[in-house]
Every structure is written in C-alpha cells, then in structure tokens.
Amino acid sequence: MALLHTVNKSPYERNTLESCLNHVQEGDTVLLIEDGVYAVIKGGRAADVLASVKGVKIAALSADLKARGITADKMIDGVEVVDYGGFVDLVTSNDKVQAWL
C-alpha cells in the first residue's frame, strides 16, 4: 500500500517536509510541488535532510523548479524531476495520496 505524499511548503518556512518525512514508509514517494521544491537546493539544510532519507523516492515538479530558477546543477542528486503528466503517473501508481498541506 504505497503512498504518494505531496509537500507544497518551503522547508525554510514550515515544518511540513519534516513532518511528512517522519511519516513516510519504505516504498512511498514524496513529491515536492509549489514552494516545496526549495528543499532540493544543494547545500541547503533541507537538502541534507532529503539526502539522508532511505527507501523513499523523492520527486520534484519541473514547472515549479523552473519557475523558481532551480536548474539541474543547483539540485542535489537523487531527485527525480517530473512534469504534470509524471505527477499524474505517481498518483495512479501509488495506492493513495496524502497532501501535507
């Protein structure tokens, strides 16, 4: 019963990502959307936390990365970039979705 978790808050403003990561289970996917994508920036405190997560797929929405000027070279490794169609695929390939609003 894999879960897709969406996180839409900057980890530097709210503890949403932290709370999400405290509740993920092996095989789950965390998709960063909207201001949630700021977590992937290399050297950032949140990126260190993300990089330490094991057994969970981390993805980020390309439209939100691009809109915020976060290019591939600024991102930590191990984050899968998906477009809206990829977002849809993550929704259908997981059993359900928890939005960490």
Binding site: M1, L3, N22, H23, V24, Q25, K96, V97, Q98, A99, W100, L101
Partner: peptide, 18 residues
C-alpha cells in the same frame, strides 16, 4: 505514536487532507 500514525495513513483507502 508517530509510527502508528504512519501505519494508520498507510491503512486508509481514502485520505482527506486538511
């Protein structure tokens, strides 16, 4: 516990997130 909460989420069919 937090761990139990994670299982409760995993066990649901539909999650309404507010």
């Amino acid at each position: 516990s937090r761990e139990e909460m994670a299982k409760i989420m995993a066990d649901a069919d539909v999650i309404l997130s507010f």
